[in-house]
Amino acid sequence: MVTIGTSSLEVYPLALGGNTFGWTTDEDASFEILDAFTAGGGNLIDTADSYSAFADGNSGGESETVIGNWTAKRNNRDDVVIATKVSQHPDFMGLSASNIVAAADASLARLQTDHIDLYYAHYDDETVPLVETLGAFDALVNAGKVRYVAISNYSPERIREWVDTAKDNGFAAPVALQPEYNLVARSDYEGERQQLALDNDLGVFPYFALAAGFLTGKYRTQDDFTTHIRSTMAKGYFSDSGLAVVSALDDIASAHSAEISSVALAWLLAQPGITAPIASASKISQLLALLAAPELTLASDEIDRLTTASDAV
């Protein structure tokens, strides 16, 4: 287990993404995945209040509802760490103080809990002064509705401003950062964000850790991109240089008798500041490879080979 930044939260170094729950995975299948994840040692579930408003027929909050139903049925709320986010639900857009409070209460109701362990600002809202946004997050912490606050999809400048504003006003400091980061998308984290995370002891949770499935190795040709709803997300990573990364992953996976996805996640875990990659599963059979990643130790030359291949993307 690893500790999230300066918090007291301890988590398995692989987070389960809840974006498929209530979207491509129905409630029964979601329960099976959640059961298997926790049985395998996992305890951090990452979601957002907007999941999955982007899907036809959904209005947002579906993922939180599934997770809330699961914890209620299993009576295991205290055994898991739940992270969710605010600013993108169609009914609760933005980061004004009143909106954050209302959105948090709505999330708590869907999750059937009295507290959110880790509450992210999902996307920046530059129309609202940071002091107002941070004051609202701080009030939720003081009220016991949120244990810790975190940041996702913020520019380095705004992360720095958030940290300074919290310090200057005595607000709850952020403990985590969630950037897009994987072997075929490194620029969002490496550099300034990485240094800010290290300097401020922020736990880092890369999303799209497997590049929407591209780094599992199942997309080797254009023909592999079917009409499946999630394949369109992976298609954005497809390129000759991306395929070279997959080929390197394949070689290293074979040497370890491991899955390609395990190796891709293990590379992430070997990078400075990374606490736990976030990866989702639409079926239980995919979970074993995800949960195996923290136990897979790559040799330095294997890490270097993957990094070099990735440099060309």
Score class of each variant (00 low, 15 high):
residue 4 I to K: 00
residue 4 I to A: 02
residue 11 V to D: 05
residue 19 N to C: 11
residue 20 T to Y: 11
residue 24 T to A: 13
residue 24 T to E: 13
residue 28 D to E: 02
residue 32 E to S: 13
residue 33 I to S: 09
residue 34 L to A: 03
residue 40 G to K: 13
residue 42 G to V: 09
residue 44 L to T: 02
residue 47 T to F: 00
residue 51 Y to R: 11
residue 53 A to Q: 13
residue 54 F to G: 04
residue 55 A to E: 13
residue 56 D to S: 14
residue 57 G to S: 09
residue 59 S to A: 14
residue 60 G to C: 10
residue 62 E to W: 07
residue 67 I to F: 04
residue 68 G to K: 01
residue 71 T to F: 03
residue 79 D to G: 01
residue 82 I to D: 06
residue 83 A to Q: 01
residue 87 S to E: 08
residue 87 S to G: 05
residue 90 P to V: 09
residue 96 S to D: 11
residue 98 S to A: 15
residue 112 Q to D: 13
residue 114 D to Q: 13
residue 117 D to A: 11
residue 119 Y to C: 01
residue 120 Y to N: 08
residue 122 H to P: 04
residue 124 D to S: 05
residue 135 G to T: 05
residue 149 V to H: 07
residue 150 A to F: 12
residue 153 N to H: 09
residue 153 N to E: 15
residue 165 T to I: 01
residue 167 K to W: 07
residue 174 P to W: 12
residue 181 Y to N: 10
residue 183 L to G: 00
residue 183 L to F: 05
residue 185 A to H: 14
residue 194 Q to I: 06
residue 194 Q to V: 02
residue 196 L to T: 07
residue 198 L to K: 10
residue 205 F to N: 07
residue 205 F to L: 15
residue 212 A to I: 02
residue 214 F to Q: 08
residue 215 L to Y: 01
residue 215 L to A: 01
residue 215 L to D: 03
residue 219 Y to W: 06
residue 222 Q to C: 00
residue 222 Q to R: 14
residue 224 D to F: 08
residue 224 D to V: 10
residue 225 F to W: 08
residue 225 F to P: 02
residue 225 F to R: 03
residue 226 T to E: 09
residue 227 T to M: 09
residue 227 T to W: 06
residue 229 I to M: 11
residue 231 S to F: 05
residue 232 T to F: 07
residue 235 K to R: 15
residue 238 F to Q: 06
residue 239 S to I: 09
residue 245 V to T: 01
residue 249 L to R: 02
residue 250 D to L: 02
residue 255 A to D: 14
residue 255 A to V: 04
residue 256 H to D: 07
residue 257 S to N: 15
residue 260 I to V: 15
residue 263 V to N: 00
residue 267 W to V: 00
residue 268 L to R: 09
residue 270 A to Q: 08
residue 274 I to E: 01
residue 274 I to G: 05
residue 277 P to T: 04
residue 279 A to Y: 08
residue 281 A to G: 09
residue 281 A to S: 15
residue 281 A to I: 11
residue 290 L to S: 01
residue 294 P to Q: 06
residue 294 P to F: 00
residue 298 L to A: 03
residue 299 A to L: 14
residue 303 I to A: 08
residue 310 S to M: 03
residue 310 S to T: 03
residue 310 S to Y: 07
residue 311 D to T: 10
residue 313 V to M: 12
